[in-house]
Design a binder for these strands. Structure first.
Lengths: 126, 126
DNA sequence: CTTGACCTTGACGTTGATGTCAAGGTTTAT
DNA sequence: ATAAACCTTGACATCAACGTCAAGGTCAAG
């Protein structure tokens, strides 16, 4: 299939696919006329990339997962490199959550000072 | 005082101060030679801006606070416009926290699938 | 043969808050 | 008089993942 069809099937733009290729995440055979030619396996790769991006991974984070799939593994996350990324990402997310909770407390404190009784909701368990 | 001194006292770069001016957050008298001239009140403004940036506000968010101070109020957060920004920001932070918690759960679930027993910490109450 | 739907590469625009350099004017000290 | 330490405006660089044109080649249908 050509780039347009892959894009439609994967739910991404052709620009994104060319960008992934430029970043070395996917590759494409070329037909005689220079058009990129993809197979079903590439749809798997792009889907993996998109689902990782959707949960906040960068393209660089996604690389081990793609490599893992290309190495023939059933899941992109089953290689040790991918697991390492998972764990690093979890740690990063935890850091971000902690930072946000801290910020929330600071802002709420300032608001309370400026306008007592203005703070409304909690975030813990609504 | 001139821009260099204000920058040192406020702990920011001169570049940042010129940028704040360009964005209409602070203004400066000009001496005969064209140099910017600041007073103590400007130090207050810059400090307010920095503390707001530090908790994740944008320069645009900071504008009502600066206006509030310039209008003669003791606190930048005591004007209704500032309170509105506080509340909007709290809501935004809450949204981000919720999104991150969701993402964390998704990533942890994927990791558990790929590598049972790899998930380590909690974020709720350590 | 020509319209239209594909495809190609290349390159600039987006977002925010600066960093950094360029090229120059001013002031103070030696 | 000249170096050192200020100041000025202007403009390009940064980060990520693309969007959006530009200018053109390819191919099937009418």
């Amino acid at each position: 299939m050509r780039i347009g069809e892959l894009a439609r099937r994967a739910g991404v733009s052709t620009r994104a696919l060319r960008y992934y290729e430029q970043q070395g995440l996917i590759t494409a055979r070329r037909s005689a006329n220079g058009y990129r030619e993809y197979g079903e396996a590439d749809l798997r790769l792009v889907s993996e990339i998109r689902s990782l991006l959707a949960v906040g991974f960068t393209l660089d984070d996604a690389r081990p997962f793609v490599d893992c799939l290309r190495a023939g593994h059933e899941s992109g996350g089953s290689c040790p490199e991918s697991v390492a990324v998972y764990q690093r990402k979890l740690a990063e997310i935890d850091d971000e959550i902690r930072a946000l909770l801290t910020r929330r407390a600071e802002v709420a404190a300032q608001l309370t000072t400026a306008c007592p009784g203005c703070v409304l909701r909690k975030v813990g368990k609504p």
